[in-house]
């Protein structure tokens, strides 16, 4: 028997991971830009607590995070019930849950990088723009974001990789439903458990190559950001 079984490889988990990660990255980008900007530019009570809270997924075991999310989003929670009444389906153990899991996995690094990138943009330049009549939105999109651009782009690529690789939170709140919520990371676990080593190995190679390419892109971007 071959080490890699390419013939019977199931592309669904990879395709699903890709879609989930793309959506999660978009959400993380929007949340990251707003939180990063708040943390970099505004002073408010509990600012550093907010920063710590956002960073929690970096240090908490995924099972703990997953547990919290089950409590908050589950079908007996207010949030879960509201969602079910409004949209007609449950949050947990769906693709939506997988997106939430991937977003939470990707967000901390995103916020940290964006905050650092924004803090490097001199406030003097933003003030110069304001004195030239620019609104806050225009200042953000024509001065702050372009000057932080490369770092933000690098952070986004890295966030995509993080979103692609989430396992713990996904299996806790999205489950392991083949053909529905089974992402690549979860599928590999499933194959190994079932003794389908060749199929697992094929998926591992695909995911590893993808991760390597992403890391390379991130490094290139961050180096140019520094230059």
């Amino acid at each position: 028997m071959n080490i890699f079984d390419w013939s019977s490889i199931d592309w669904f988990p990879i395709w699903l991971s890709f879609r989930v990660a793309t959506l999660a990255t978009l959400i993380a980008l929007i949340l990251g830009l707003s939180c990063g900007w708040l943390l970099a530019r505004k002073n408010f009570l509990g600012k550093e607590w907010l920063d710590s809270f956002i960073a929690l997924p970096l240090v908490l075991p995924p099972t703990v995070l997953g547990y919290y999310l089950l409590v908050v989003l589950g079908n007996r929670s207010p949030v879960g019930q509201f969602f079910e009444n409004t949209f007609g389906f449950r949050l947990t153990f769906t693709v939506t849950a997988a997106v939430i899991a991937a977003t939470i996995h990707a967000l901390p690094l995103m916020v940290k990088s964006v905050r650092a990138a924004f803090e490097q943009v001199p406030t003097q330049l933003e003030n110069a723009a304001r004195l030239l009549g620019a609104s806050e939105w225009r200042v953000f999109f024509t001065v702050t974001l372009p000057l932080a651009g490369r770092t933000v782009l690098a952070a986004t690529v890295l966030a995509f990789a993080r979103a692609l690789g989430d396992f713990g939170v996904t299996i806790m709140i999205a489950g392991n439903i083949p053909g529905r919520t089974q992402t690549a990371a979860v599928a590999i676990y499933d194959y190994v458990q079932a003794g389908k080593d060749a199929q697992a190995a094929a998926l591992v190679v695909v995911v590893s190559v993808l991760a390597l390419v992403i890391m390379y892109a991130t490094n290139r971007l961050s180096h140019r950001a520094l230059a």
Binding site: A128, R130, L131
Partner: peptide, 10 residues
Amino acid sequence: LQKRRVGYVF
């Protein structure tokens, strides 16, 4: 700042 219309050379 926007409404003051000040020319500032830093």
